[in-house]
Design a protein around this nucleic acid. Structure first.
Length: 354
DNA sequence: GACTCGTGGGA
DNA sequence: TTCCCAAGAGT
């Protein structure tokens, strides 16, 4: 292994190098250099970390799990109010498990990917029934819970139970890709090489590993962002392989997810109606009001049928679904998908949350 | 591996 | 306005 330059002052000799020596892409570095990275991010995190409620001293493992699931593909600012409502209403897993799954879906609000709410309810049920109401405190145990994958299991093990776990999320992947890999962005999907690299970079000390995981994630969220990173504010910019390489552009262009006209958009609109509805919604109303009538006015909820008492939110949700101009086949597919996923149940011609 | 699955805010 | 993308998981 070639000795690598640490955080030495820029002497004439080091300055004379044509190219700064790139760190090994697998993350292998001089132990001293690694310690310097750990210390730098530890200090930065201590000074700049956001005050998030699931990081408070009075946090519970359950609260950490709920936050991690809510944060899957959803920004912090949108999660905050919903997380607070959940914790106030369901402070323990058994509290949530005691209610119908539909209540979790309704309280999920507009966070998106409502299956997460369903799985959180399922996880709470398992925790209450099989774990005496306490979260498993190992990655393996957590991984067995519905909706908990490799990332969430590692994150809860680390942040709720103080375990040394290799946490790899989209932020950490990006920071590692730049800082160590010298690339603008990580690969489209998580690779085994990234996991090995993350394991190598993780501090051996348990307590420091927990801070490191949180710090790298926080750096990715606040400084080393996907678009226009704030390198001037970065505590480890001097050690960044991507900067040393002249900030080469991404080698691929991410494929955006289609949205307009997709089944997904229809599912979302139907779910918004079911969340807003106080009573089960007739399937007949969906068929009549929401299919193939773009450009026409939806029947005013309240004029001729059982939405006589429809309030603003329900009216808005119906209007939005109507505006999609969904065809019969697409509505059928969307409903079938929701029923198959358990996000909706149908009985006696009515649709409602589970 | 490739797909699917919501939502809203900022660039 | 359009596009990008945010603490992924399950099939």
């Amino acid at each position: 292994m070639t000795p690598r330059r640490g955080a030495v002052p820029a002497t004439a000799a080091t300055r004379r190098r044509a190219q700064p020596e790139a760190p090994a892409p697998d993350g292998a570095r001089d132990p001293e250099q690694l310690r310097a990275l750990h210390a730098a991010l530890e200090d930065w995190f201590g000074a700049e970390a956001r005050d998030l409620p699931w990081r408070e001293h009075d946090r519970t493992p359950w609260g950490v799990l709920v936050s991690e699931v809510m944060l899957q593909q959803t920004p912090v600012v949108r999660v905050l109010p919903v997380w607070r409502e959940w914790m106030a209403r369901w402070p323990r897993p058994a509290d949530l498990a005691a209610e119908p799954a539909g209540e979790a879906v309704r309280a999920w609000g507009r966070l998106g990917y409502p299956r997460r709410a369903l799985r959180l309810h399922a996880a709470a049920t398992v925790i209450a029934a099989e774990h005496d109401g306490e979260l498993p405190d190992t990655e393996e145990g957590l991984l067995a819970l519905p909706g908990v994958g490799t990332y969430t299991a590692a994150a809860v093990a680390a942040f709720a139970f103080g375990r040394r776990a290799t946490v790899v999320d989209t932020n950490i992947r990006r920071v590692h890709a730049r800082l160590v890999g010298g690339e603008a962005l990580p690969a489209p999907s998580l690779t085994a090489a990234e996991l090995r690299r993350a394991a190598i970079l993780l501090p051996a000390d348990r307590e420091r590993s927990v801070v490191w995981n949180a710090a790298v994630m926080e750096l990715g969220a606040l400084v080393c962002t996907a678009r226009s990173p704030r390198c001037a504010e970065c505590p480890v910019a001097g050690a960044c392989a991507w900067r040393a390489a002249g900030e080469p552009p991404p080698t691929y262009t991410p494929r955006g997810q289609a949205w307009h006209g997709t089944d997904r958009q229809v599912r979302g609109a139907v779910m918004a109606v079911l969340r807003a509805a106080e009573q089960p919604v007739t399937r007949e109303l969906l068929d009549r009001e929401m299919v193939g009538s773009a450009g026409s006015e939806p029947s005013a909820p309240g004029s001729t049928h059982h939405f006589a008492e429809a309030g603003g939110p329900l009216r808005d949700a119906i209007t939005r679904l109507h505006a999609l101009g969904t065809g019969p086949d697409q509505l059928e597919r969307a409903l079938a998908g929701l029923l198959a996923d358990g996000l909706a149940v149908e009985a006696e011609g009515h649709l409602r949350l589970p």
